[in-house]
Design a protein around this nucleic acid. Structure first.
Length: 430
RNA sequence: UCCGGUAUAGCUCAGUUGGUUAGAGCAACGGACUGUUAAUCCGUGUGUCCCUGGUUCGAGUCCAGGUACCGGAGCCA
């Protein structure tokens, strides 16, 4: 008997097959039983018709419970009345394990209860769809960079110092010395770009800040491209092209999942480059015209970001921020020393910053002065300064937070559902 | 870290001005039903009322402290 996946059943109409999976749900009506079988690739209805299959098999069907593991053998038939248009007429049932008192019922549950059962919650339709879309986004991201001559060069997780000197890091005991979990692969990425031209790194990053919002995790995944011989404008264009590519991929490959999530796809169809670009200074004017009382020089909070992004139906690129609110490695604008050549992409629909990047300072003397000014330990940065001694070039890059992109594309109220096992201020388990 | 809120059955919740025996729906279990889509109908069980202390003849209810969680702010992707 041929073993097949539920996503492929359409190719096996009127054929005998075997399916391995779990009981998603079941209903019965006297002499006919309806089984919802889940195998990770889809859900298929199985029919147990007592007069045809006999007393014994029908009794076995009745013992099945939610999430019991089973295999079924039977013939695939088409039925326009059911989702997917196919069902299986079951002739044989193999029970592997009967599940008892499965905690997640097809009824209402609170988020805390579901998160305590995250290892089981991932089996449900909605969570399954989110993870499929997350996978599509990650795959699209990698395909985009791989197809544009970028090389994936991994950067370390254990680092001896804070790369930007600002955020709180997780400290670990590294054989008697302090090591910190990486908050960004950025500095190593710059070295890699000088070796390979175009590179990207993709891995987990860690922030020990006690942020308690719908946009924060303590462990999240970030993709960071870095390009030699690249200025701020080109950097922005790469970000635009990346987002356009990702959205297009999700729209063409994950329609079913978007439908399960109830996502309004017309909003996603508008995500085409170029995106609106406005300077920080223009933003300040826009905010003050919009009723805010915002002074030039401060960082945008979440209400400000939301207001700015609500003015557009595409991601908006904000650029040229005040020097004092940005990291030491960003290059100052030659036309205005008060601002740096940095940029943030704010997602539509109030999802906040999804990309942050900049052109990097390539001059040794200026960078040294910045290191001193920020009181960073020069010894730890010697290798980084080397990059400005040995063939320094104009270069730029950015970082994109995967979870925020997933939350935006899926239109989720909170990033905690965008990652299989979220790590937050209040949650380390399961 | 700051501000606000919540905690009662396996789950989601109701519980009156403090009053004696703490409730509903769903799930679970038993039964009926030949096409169900969170099927329907009949029947059955369920409690450390978050913890500690206090006020009171009497506390799920009021007070104090603690804990956990939720929402927001700050910080950030």
């Amino acid at each position: 008997m041929k073993k097949i996946l539920i996503k492929n059943v359409k190719n096996y109409i009127n054929k005998d097959v075997r399916l391995d999976g779990w009981v998603y749900n079941k209903r019965s009506s006297g002499k006919i039983g309806f089984l919802m079988l889940r195998d990770g690739t889809g859900i298929l209805q199985g029919i147990f018709f007592k007069p045809e299959i006999g007393e014994k098999l029908f009794t076995e069907f009745k013992t099945l419970t939610q999430e019991s593991s089973i295999s079924v053998e039977g013939i695939i038939t088409s039925n326009e009345k059911v989702d997917g248009g196919c069902e299986i007429q079951v002739k044989n049932l193999i029970i592997h394990n009967i599940s008892k008192d499965y905690p997640i019922t097809p009824k209402e549950h609170g988020t805390d209860f579901l998160m305590n059962n995250r290892h089981l919650w991932l089996r449900s339709k909605r969570q399954h769809s989110i993870m499929k879309i997350r996978h599509e986004i990650i795959k699209a991201t990698r395909d985009f960079f791989d197809g544009n001559d970028f090389t994936l060069i991994d950067t370390p997780i254990f680092t001896p110092n804070a790369c930007e000197g600002t955020t709180t890091l997780f400290a670990t005991d590294y054989f008697g010395e302090n090591a910190y979990l990486s908050q960004s692969g950025q500095l190593y990425n710059e070295a890699n770009a000088m070796a390979f031209g175009r590179v990207y790194t993709f891995g987990p990053t860690f922030r020990a800040e006690k942020s308690k919002t719908r946009r924060h995790l303590t462990e999240f995944w970030m993709v960071e491209p870095e390009l030699a011989y690249c200025d701020l404008n080109e950097d922005m264009q790469w970000g635009e092209k990346l987002l356009e590519f990702i959205v297009e991929r999700v729209l063409s490959n994950r329609q079913l999942e978007l439908k399960i999530l109830g996502r309004d796809t017309s909003k996603l169809e508008k995500i085409k480059a170029p995106f609106p670009k406005i300077s920080y200074s223009e933003c300040v004017e826009m905010l003050n015209d919009g009723g805010f009382n915002f002074e030039w020089g401060g960082d945008f909070g979440s209400p400000e970001e939301t207001f700015i992004s609500e003015q557009y139906d595409k991601p908006v690129i904000v650029h040229r921020f005040p020097t004092q609110i940005k990291a030491f490695y960003m290059k100052r604008d030659p036309e205005n020393e008060k601002v740096v050549l940095g940029m943030d992409f704010l997602a539509p629909e109030g999802y906040g910053e999804i990309i942050g990047g900049s052109e990097r300072e390539s001059d040794l003397e200026v960078l040294l002065e910045r290191v001193k000014h920020e009181k960073l330990p020069r010894d730890e940065f010697e290798w980084y300064l080397d990059l400005r001694k040995y063939g320094s070039v104009q270069h730029a890059g950015f970082g994109m937070g995967i979870e925020r992109v997933v939350a935006w594309i899926c239109k989720l109220p909170h990033v905690r559902e965008t990652i299989p096992y979220p790590r937050m201020l209040q949650r380390l388990r399961p």
